[in-house]
Design a protein around this nucleic acid. Structure first.
Lengths: 323, 323
DNA sequence: ATGAAAGCGCTAACAA
DNA sequence: TTGTTAGCGCTTTCAT
């Protein structure tokens, strides 16, 4: 800017006014505006984002901490959030935590250090003094998929319980009476809510769960658990698996067992599967609107950043995809 | 820092020396160092990343422009790159271009404006004056998956041709003589190299391609093309699909045709498929070491950023996964 | 072993 | 309509 100003015999300030697009506000003459832009083009001026961010005390970027980018849920969320970020001129910094608290705190530190203006994350712990304090100190935070306990931070998520209701209704509609639930750890609100919905829907239908298990949300753990389930007696006639990895593991166990799907064992899984139509077994799924979660979370974060009041929870409806 | 200095009766400079971890270099007394750190802790000092980046003229972050985060190839790459970035104290900004030149240039602009110190990308165009000039202006760039023509920028990628050789050798070993190639647009180096490898391997085996088609790398396009292929006569006995979406589309066409796999039609696809074991049809794949590509690209970029000379190409071997 | 001072590139309050 | 000036928080050079 200084160079441009010198060559044009203007002040650096005027050049700044023009280049920042504030010529209207400062009533810079059309002529000067043109001159400045032309010279800027000729000299290949590029604004220094670092200087501007420093001066303005904001980076126009936002961090998104996801648990596992190889899971389409988190990927879709990231894509949705980036869309929205892009639309509003923000840069999205995606951080893959892999469920590590340390990496989550690293993301939080980016917020503390001003590297990003806001943070979207799915808290790993239920109660987190560090995050709580950050939030109370006025740092913009929005949660996704699951909320912190004891803290009034906005959370954007699928209506997990409603998804479970869809699953049970679907299976009950198919005359299944022995439905088993395969879920994740109950300390995670996501799984608590999915099981809660399952129980409620079963009760309403007058059914008793054939089994209820909670394992680590990995294909391996689900594989083992479901194998055991299938060799028990009486065998469940249907499985509701509460997460994509659990569904995968269950399908593997079923494949191993040689049971016929859906004749001998029926399956509904939470989280949609891209190539479900190519699978050996038709699997009905509860699809989350993943991109919307990302987009909404970003929108809510922007509101928070503007100091607006936002709803405590934004619930998005899941959809049943029958196959 | 100023506040800490004031309370301690020190200069801001000294505090900076300590907090930046440079007490050794400036021979600050043990006592002062301790005092400063304690006060920093008490006052909950957080360094201002924006100020530091501004002053140091570097952001310690790097941009990665990927084409499509819903494709496990790009996701894996991002995960690998982030691992490495993390290890070295860098922040990775992932930008999902969706194949849009505009979004690619947006990423390039982040580099120009100093928002990031380096850029990893898979160039959309073959010849790109903008990127070329950026690179020649000394901005650190590393390419992945495919290189720009006419420009000596490092490129980290799978040895595509070698992958094709694996595919053909596998099929030829299974006594297939009528192998059809289903690839992507030939303007993309990736697909050119995969087809090149296919042709070479076929020739070496004394085989003539049953067909060679190039379509948009989408399931839909592949579905249509392969349907046509399968209803032709003589029908190919095997398909080599040069990308994950092409494989998907081909499998759908096969499913529709009712042909038996692998008895009537055999398939090898480039890019591994996570749940291949659960598919109706066993599909052998050429797996890329996606995380390594990301990691290597980042490492090479660091070298470039240090001004070191780097190899023009880093080739990673693909692996055949037989199913 | 510590400090004074300059300056990174930009924005904005204020002056003219 | 344009210019002067201060200052954002930090690192670094040079003095002491």
């Amino acid at each position: 800017m200084r160079d441009i100003a010198e060559r044009l015999g203007l002040s650096q300030t005027t050049v700044s006014h023009v280049l920042a697009g504030n010529h209207e506000r400062f009533r810079i003459s059309r002529e000067t505006v043109d001159k400045v832009w032309r010279m800027a083009g000729k000299m290949r001026y590029r604004s220094n984002a670092l200087a501007r961010a420093f001066r303005e005390r904001r980076s126009r970027s936002v961090a998104l901490a996801v648990e596992d980018l190889t899971n389409p849920f988190w990927t879709g969320l990231a894509v949705g959030a980036e869309h929205e970020a892009d639309r509003l001129g923000y840069t999205l910094v995606v951080s893959n935590t892999g469920g590590s608290l340390q990496k989550e705190q690293q993301a939080a530190r980016m917020l503390e250090e001003g590297r990003v203006d806001g943070l979207i994350l799915a808290p790993i712990r239920q109660v987190d003094p560090y995050l709580s304090e950050l939030y109370r100190a006025g740092r913009p935070i929005v949660q996704i998929d699951r909320p912190l306990r004891n803290l009034d931070v906005a959370c954007v998520r699928t209506d997990h319980a409603a998804g479970s209701v869809l699953a049970v209704e679907h299976l009950a509609g198919r005359r299944h009476a022995r439905i088993a639930y395969v879920g994740g750890p109950l300390r995670v609100p996501t799984y608590r809510q999915r099981r809660e919905g399952f129980r409620r829907a079963m009760r309403r239908r007058g059914l008793k769960p054939a089994a209820e298990i909670a394992v680590d949300p990995t294909p391996e753990a689900a594989h083992r658990a479901v194998s055991r389930l299938l060799s028990g007696s009486p065998r469940p006639s249907a499985l509701y698996t509460a997460n994509i990895w659990l569904t995968l593991g269950a399908l593997r166990a079923i494949q191993e067992s040689g049971l016929a799907v859906p004749a001998q064992i029926d399956v509904v899984g939470f989280d949609d599967i891209q190539m479900a139509d190519l699978l050996r077994y038709p699997v009905t799924t509860i699809a989350q609107d993943v991109e919307s979660i990302g987009r909404e979370a970003f929108k809510v974060l922007m509101q928070v950043m503007k100091g607006r009041k936002v709803p405590r929870e934004v619930l998005l409806p899941p959809a049943l995809i029958v196959r």
